[in-house]
Design a protein around this nucleic acid. Structure first.
Lengths: 346, 346
DNA sequence: ATATTTTAGGCAATCGATTGCAATTAGCAA
DNA sequence: TTGCTAATTGCAATCGATTGCCTAAAATAT
């Protein structure tokens, strides 16, 4: 089956005994064209099954209304939600969305970025891979004056737009909530401190304790517990302490919180009475566990929308002149049974 | 900040006192170019920070190495996995991946398809929206000789490549497993029978019962139970029967199975002893519930890969001459505690 | 009726890379 | 040395749409 030639504006022009430029003007709704002619062209174009060749148009206009996205994994809950939100906005604006996944590999990320640069996309949105490497590829994007928007996992030293969760604030609120529920020895499961997001969460934890007159105890802070297994191991150790914690804030992820939950359940420790638990991310499963897990929703879909709006300069409250090109998305504490030991009586 | 002109092959040609055509040949690794010249061009191109303009190249070559995807929702577990698998293959082939979501709306789907046609993509991959509508937009894709690959939710009457789960087989195996575990009255939660996938699952259920000499009882088949809530409601009714089922196959989704689980738990019915449960999809949460839920893995990532390979004509066991352009992905039964009442002793 | 402004539409260059064909040079055989 | 092939490279057209500039006709003003 051979591909038959598609209809071009020249075909339409010939059909109507017009110049191609007039057809183009009619189709692009220019005001330099007679209304009747325009209608005629539109009608003929429809009849001839005309579809614009976007490549030709983009080449001539020198821009490609496309946003490129590079994320570690497309099929991770958080990322797929961000992409969904972003797609919503870009589609409305008539933009395309091209997607690459880095699989957490630096080399793959570089390749993806290059492909997007070749495409001459108008914006690249990225959450960087875990694997360390140089930032030349990102710098190159900036040098070519393609807009670069980083989100969630960002390279701090690069001067780009950044869309972030207010991790500090979220952690603060979580710990505050635990304090209000009467927990007195609140432990923290920390993530790798190389990553800014985990440092910020720790800051929020410490600030909340201090603001409420609680001591900050290093024995209650457990490093690098960011998977279910590590969370479980950490919990086993913490609960074996002479003076064990009465709450655990798994600031790394809901998976760590799940590990906490399972260990506590196995030990017959009652949740939330004897142990309060709070996770991070609002993964779908947190609603389903027994008891359900208190966690922090990152509004990932909303985050995607904000990224898109940022590109289209439509983000409310955003001052393009501002030095700090950072947009914060305010996460929300979702209180569930794993931390709710006081019933809410008004 | 104004966008400085990017380096073109003409810039390189001028720099080296060559013709642009020679630069093009050098860059595309043509054999009609001297090795030394080629090396020189490559070196200079790198120095001048050259990146090919893909739009110009695609326009001239008349094709766009891009695959477009239209799915109901990007952030649905199944779809995001398919996309991830597809991206893997397309990236390896040097293709781009453009993504649209229909949000289950027909009009949105049409718009998305049109955008992809404009882009002159070489292949469109689609899982159709739930909202019914005409198939003109898909027919148009075929008329333009753009390859169309449907997956999961397909329009049967269109003659296109189709990548499907073997739903019948999967359901058969699930029911067979329940029978082997000694369940005798196995109920079915059905999905909307307009959709082929649900019809096939029902067929598998019936066939398994018949093959093992069990009666097919209409009172054990419950229509349209494809959310958690509907699954719960169905379960409540089924368990109130004078002679209730001792197993429920939630063929619609794991969410429905979750509804079953919750109702049974609330009623104090022991799982798997008094009631066996099997879901469909292998959602991540099925591993976490108590008890964990037996379900069917659809190999969604693998499905995405197969779609990609199909486009690149590399799919093993695929005969391009065959009339039936359908590729089946074999799902796998994942046996967990919700249906395992016999321990496996060899 | 003449001058001036608008309006409509055509011409041709352009975006950047590719490619068929022609031209030049080198390589080699007779 | 002449003739012929092969290897390189250049020239120019091309992909399809857009747009600055120009012209002709129509509309309006004087």
């Amino acid at each position: 089956m051979k591909r038959q030639k598609r209809t071009t504006i020249y075909d339409i022009a010939q059909q109507l005994n017009l110049a191609a430029s007039s057809v183009s003007r009619a189709l692009s709704d220019s005001n330099k064209i007679n209304a009747e002619t325009k209608a005629l062209v539109l009608k003929t174009a429809a009849e001839m099954n005309y579809q614009q060749n976007a490549m030709a148009s983009n080449l001539r206009k020198g821009n490609n209304p496309t946003i490129g996205v590079v994320v570690p994994r497309i099929n991770q809950y958080f990322f797929s939600n961000v992409i969904a939100g972003l797609e919503e906005v870009t589609f409305k604006a008539g933009y395309n969305l091209v997607i690459c996944q880095s699989n957490e590999l630096h080399a793959r990320e570089v390749e993806g970025i290059n492909a997007l640069v070749n495409q001459n996309v108008s914006c690249i949105v990225i959450s960087i891979a875990a694997e360390k490497g140089s930032f030349d590829h990102l710098q190159q994007v900036l040098d070519r004056n393609i807009q670069l928007i980083q989100f969630d996992r960002v390279v701090e030293e690069l001067e780009t737009f950044k869309v972030l969760n207010d991790n500090r604030q979220a952690a603060y609120e979580a710990v505050q909530h635990l304090i209000e529920q009467g927990y007195r020895r609140i432990a923290l499961l920390e993530g790798p401190q190389e990553l800014q997001i985990f440092r910020e969460r720790k800051e929020g934890y410490i600030a909340a304790l201090q603001d409420h007159g609680f001591p900050v105890l290093s024995e209650l802070m457990y490093a690098n517990a960011w998977t279910k297994e590590l969370g479980a191991a950490a919990t086993a150790q913490l609960l074996d302490m002479p003076d064990p914690p009465d709450a655990i804030f798994a600031s790394t992820s809901d998976f760590a919180a799940l590990g906490v939950l399972e260990v506590a359940n196995n030990k017959g420790i009652r949740i939330p009475e004897a142990l309060g638990i709070c996770g991070y991310s609002n993964e779908p499963f947190t609603e389903i566990t027994s008891p359900s897990i208190t966690t922090i929703d990152q509004f990932s879909v909303e985050m995607g929308r904000k990224i898109g709006n940022l590109h289209f300069q439509e983000l409310e409250n955003f001052n393009p002149e501002s030095k700090t090109k950072t947009v914060n998305v305010r996460p929300e504490l979702i209180i569930r049974n794993s931390s709710l030991r006081k019933s809410h009586v008004p």
